[in-house]
């Protein structure tokens, strides 16, 4: 095999892995909300946007601190607190009044919300992209892979690996939270049957607020990572959020494992279709695969089949 081809394959795999981890994280935020509250959050990309900009603003304020790692840590903590509040507020003000309304109303209210959030970010920070004042992930020099006979060596950025690790820690943490902690189990109980959960003494309101803030935090971290990868916060962040929709449908709306596997699957499809066939296929290839999968499995790969009664 041609050494250039091998390096290209390695590069694409490497990109797809980190991209997949990011998509899995974003998709997880969507699945989290869907499982607990039966809402599909079309404003997820905007949660990433708002989180990213809050992180950016905190970094700007905190860059006076001598040690950059302390500044980044404080900024991330501040961002988590702020996005928790955003999540709780959104749940309380926008989604709670719509409990029991048809799906289309709930979809539309999150779309309205996404417009409001974009407008607020635009009014405060304008539309020009802004570079992060401090690197949230230290920029190490790239690994170099050289092969006999290859025209160019392959340079791989270690940031990508760190992003992969962060995503894994977050996803793993959430999985542990669901399987071990009291509130995590309460969330699963709520997702399973709200009335039964209520009669066992679980506060549905608290669970809904918790779900929205957890999802908002996951989205905000994703937003900040995108800001790092693209060298700054900009209005393009919600576009990445849109890429998570084929992921959750492919994996099945209510499956956490589906979100993770779907994230990597979509990332590999996008990267390899654009790398080997045509660069323009990046946006459209996930949807083509999605349509085929849905024809065969209408509830995605791991989604729970709904049994309807008349």
């Amino acid at each position: 095999m041609n050494p250039d081809e091998i390096l290209k394959f390695l590069r694409l795999t490497y990109t797809a892995l980190s991209d997949g981890a990011l998509l899995a994280l974003i998709a997880l935020a969507l699945v989290l909300i869907y499982k607990a509250t039966d809402v599909i959050n079309f404003a997820n990309g905007e949660f990433m946007l708002v989180g990213g900009y809050i992180g950016y603003q905190l970094l700007v304020w905190l860059q006076v601190i001598e040690s950059p790692s302390v500044a980044v840590l404080l900024a991330v903590i501040g961002m988590v607190v702020a996005t928790t509040l955003v999540g709780v507020l959104v749940e309380r003000l926008v989604l709670r009044p719509l409990i029991g309304e048809p799906i289309i109303s709930v979809i539309m209210v999150t779309i309205g919300l996404s417009n409001v959030m974009q407008a607020i970010v635009g009014l405060i920070w304008g539309k020009n992209p802004r570079p992060l004042p401090i690197d949230i992930i230290p920029r190490f020099s790239p690994f170099r892979i050289e092969l006999e006979g290859a025209r160019r060596p392959l340079n791989l950025l270690p940031d990508t690996l760190i992003i992969l690790v962060i995503a894994f820690i977050l996803v793993g943490g959430l999985l542990l939270f669901f399987s071990r902690s009291k509130h995590g189990i309460a969330m699963r109980a709520t997702a399973d049957d709200q009335q039964a959960a209520m009669s066992m003494g679980i506060s549905i309101r608290f669970i809904f607020a918790l779900t929205w803030s957890l999802a908002a935090i996951a989205a905000a971290v994703a937003g900040l990572i995108i800001a790092h990868v693209t060298n700054g916060v900009s209005g393009d962040i919600p576009g990445v959020g849109l890429r998570a929709f084929p992921v959750i449908i492919l994996g099945g709306l209510d499956s956490i494992a589906g979100a993770i596997i779907g994230g990597f699957a979509i990332a590999f499809i996008e990267t390899f279709a654009s790398g080997y066939i045509d660069p323009g296929l990046k946006t459209v290839s996930p949807y083509l695969v999605l349509l085929i999968v849905l024809m065969i499995k209408p509830y995605g790969l791991f989604g729970q089949k709904r049994i309807e009664r008349v």
Partner: peptide, 24 residues
Amino acid sequence: VTVLPFVQQGTFGVLIILMLIVEP
């Protein structure tokens, strides 16, 4: 010029949300 698109977008969003809450 800079604010108008955001105001249009924000008003659009707020009105949708209000409409759905007040008179679905």
